[in-house]
């Protein structure tokens, strides 16, 4: 069982949970509509969102990768536009805190067991 857990922890950063085939939908679902209240670009019908959808479509036609498109947009709008925060010095704590809780809890339980 410990092996399973270790395996999980190794898999942790690499897994992506997405069922989306369409690339435009996938990208626009991961973008925040900055002028709306908590909607993604994909879901929003605002002017801003509609223009951004066109931009993403253009960029895909220009053969930009998903990463390049995110880079293009964060250069203009900051990381606030991404729904999935990047893993960097600002977000180490965000990504690792739940993991730390999990390990800590595991230690508590197995110490009690033996």
């Amino acid at each position: 069982m410990k092996k399973i857990l270790i395996l999980l922890i190794i898999m942790y950063p690499t897994i992506s949970f997405s069922t989306e085939n369409n690339k435009i939908n996938k990208i626009t679902k991961n973008l925040r509509c900055l002028i709306c209240q908590g909607q993604s670009i994909y879901d929003s019908q605002s002017e801003f969102a509609n223009s951004l959808k066109k931009i993403v479509e253009d960029k895909i036609n220009e053969n930009m990768t998903e990463k390049q498109i995110y880079k293009f947009l964060t250069d203009k709008y900051g990381e606030w536009i991404l729904y999935e925060p990047k893993f960097n010095k600002n977000t180490y704590f965000l990504w690792l805190f739940p993991l730390a809780i999990f390990i800590f809890g595991g230690i508590l339980i197995f110490k009690k067991k033996t």
């Binding site: 900055l34 002028i35 605002s46 002017e47 801003f48 509609n50 223009s51 951004l52 066109k54 931009i55 253009d58 203009k76 709008y77």
Partner: peptide, 13 residues
């Protein structure tokens, strides 16, 4: 006319 240029500028609206 389609708002794309404004996005390129980094505008919200």
């Amino acid at each position: 006319d389609d708002g794309k240029n404004s996005i390129n500028f980094g505008a919200y609206g």
